[in-house]
Design a protein around this nucleic acid. Structure first.
Lengths: 215, 215, 215, 215
DNA sequence: AATGAATGAGGGTTCATTCAT
DNA sequence: AATGAATGAACCCTCATTCAT
């Protein structure tokens, strides 16, 4: 009796392979919402649709699950940015405007936005996370954006500001947007809040505008 | 006999007046460092130099202590800003530049900087904090900064951007600076980081510059 | 090698069905012996042969365990009396003598005897227990015994005494017997104490005798 | 400046001497109401109108206070009964009827009624109380009432019942009345309850009536 | 592989007792 | 003598983790 060729993996089988991702997704939601310490591992399992014991079949402890959550999410995003920047051709401002409006808008809408809250919240308790985050996220991002701005300064397109500060001026509000989405923004409809996607565009515009011209 | 080798219990001190502030200070440090849930109430007591039981003489529960920490710290800062803005005479950009460089630098250097991390981290677990923070901090701050920018737009000093977004562009990096100080920034010496005080100045400068001229 | 000297933890047993009753039995013994407040929940668990945590798998709090102890024990006895009285045919005095000598002797010998001490001791702290006990035990018992005595008075078999008082004269010593068993009687062999079973018979005899004849 | 001769002891002075009794009274009320373990020593002090520390000036521990409560109350009652019986002249039934109706009614109305609940509740936790109560209360009372009944049997006034049981038939309801007053009776107005004073009279009447005549 | 009953260390909170004032 | 702030052992309950099924 041949299997239907269009369903190569029966549901049960597929389930099993999907478990780690389902657990990570559930954990990210809950850790970001309530904090790592305040989240019970049974809740994570329940949200992933499995029992408490099953969680421990995939991750040896709650702490390892946390590390997996952070590294797995960030790793895929890092790869996405690399891909992005690699193929880019154009001037400095355009690249920045492009990356920010495209990449950050996607990140803001995705579960990855929650990772920033998680990192902010838990780095001090887990040094490994600090090391990983700095090496894999902060440093590459700073280097990428920083080099673009430096090129802009060298070409006279931008004023001679402190590059590191300019990077912060550009990036910090992006991160804050993600943090806000998962903290105050999740508590009740914030009235006086500009639409996040539009804000990203306006913010990049204001900062790039502010970088131009004579100092 | 150089000194008594047995000092089992330091002499009890009766310091009813000073305790609440000492407990709040200790709690803010620890809550911001490890998170509310991961901080043991005994640690807070120990850092304040009292025993576990004494904490409960002043605050009926760990949760009430948290609320006291947040409201007490913010209340005094709110009062400070009010004082600041009340007596101010000058143009829009000057006011903003003044407030930001003076007030935010002071906040960044003070323990209050930790409150932002605490709020971001815990609002979703404690609705009361959300309500308080929105009513006492977010709304007044947005209104204050927003009205200044609107006046700038009305007078033609600024471009006609979305005011709410401009407020975010200005404020978000200030908050991120505070968050960073108590998360990644506290883990190890960050190499590629501009000096916070200088960054505040440069950031206000860039944004205000970016707000000027034709759209 | 006679036996393994290290038996650190007895093997875990999964006995979901039997646990509730075992916990209730252990709790009744200890609550009656030491009082509710003076009994540690860990003691109850230990006497039931489980760990502290297991207790809370079955009862959400010590207080709920107390309520379960009382209602479970009394409910089954109430059913027994109903059964008893339902099928009875005979004169008043005979019914009373029968019920008392049979039913009370059985109760006295059973763990249920301890419930009376528990109720006396804890009603004032737990209003729910008062309501339950009055509705399910006091009122039905008073009604049952009272109606029998009233029939006796109506038929001229008994003197015209106050029925409610006669009920008390009959029942109070039964309850006191149970209380005594779990208080002074449990402290050391009471010398001058008539055998409880014989006392029940003699007491019913004396009171019924005392109810007869002219007033 | 002469003092008023009608107030030889100024209020403060009088207060100090009255303290032990006030503390005992407060403790009896609270211990009987909530149980020894569930009563906080600060509550006792507060009800006696003093501070926590003052309690420990008069009694070295909560347990010693409990013992003082019980022995002090009972000692004075014991003395009262001795006084009563010493001077009595009359037949057996009359003595019993007299003692019961007079003495028990007074006890029922006084705070002493609470001591019975306290003894029942706490004997098993405090062996000293058991010894004291047995030696000073149970044994003398049993002996006194028992000897009267035995004289009644010897004279043919009573049937040849078991004396110890007859004592129990007489006394148990008196004690139950006291227990009830401080447990269920204190929770809400018990509807179907005969007036205690009248019940005492009727009960003695029924039992003495039941003891008479041929067996 | 999956489950969920069982465990027990750990943490929040209470309260008897002490002691500086 | 009186107070009440301070202490810390003890207790209720939770939850990460284990393991019998």
């Amino acid at each position: 009796m041949p299997e239907t060729p269009t369903a190569p993996t029966p549901p049960r089988q597929r389930r099993k392979e999907a478990r780690p991702q389902e657990l990570i997704d559930a954990a990210l939601e809950l850790f970001a919402e309530k904090g790592f310490a305040a989240t019970r591992s049974e809740e994570v399992a329940a949200r992933a649709g499995v029992s408490k014991g099953t969680l421990y079949l995939y991750y040896p402890s709650k702490e390892e699950l946390l590390k997996a959550v952070i590294s797995q999410r960030l790793s895929s995003e890092i790869e996405a940015v690399r891909e992005y920047a690699r193929g880019y051709r154009g001037d400095c401002a355009s690249l920045l405007r492009e990356v920010f409006t495209e990449w950050w808008r996607r990140v803001f809408d995705s579960p990855t936005s929650a990772v920033f809250k998680l990192v902010i919240t838990e780095v001090r308790n887990f040094p490994e996370i600090a090391a990983f985050y700095r090496a894999e996220v902060v440093d590459p991002a700073t280097a990428l954006v920083g080099s673009v701005i430096e090129r802009g300064i060298a070409s006279g397109e931008f004023r001679a500001v402190d590059t590191r500060g300019a990077v912060m001026s550009l990036l910090f509000p992006m991160i804050m947007l993600c943090l806000h989405k998962h903290s105050l923004g999740a508590c009740a409809p914030t009235l006086e809040m500009m639409d996040p996607h539009e804000f990203i565009g306006q913010h990049v515009d204001i900062v790039l505008h502010g970088l131009r011209g004579r100092s």
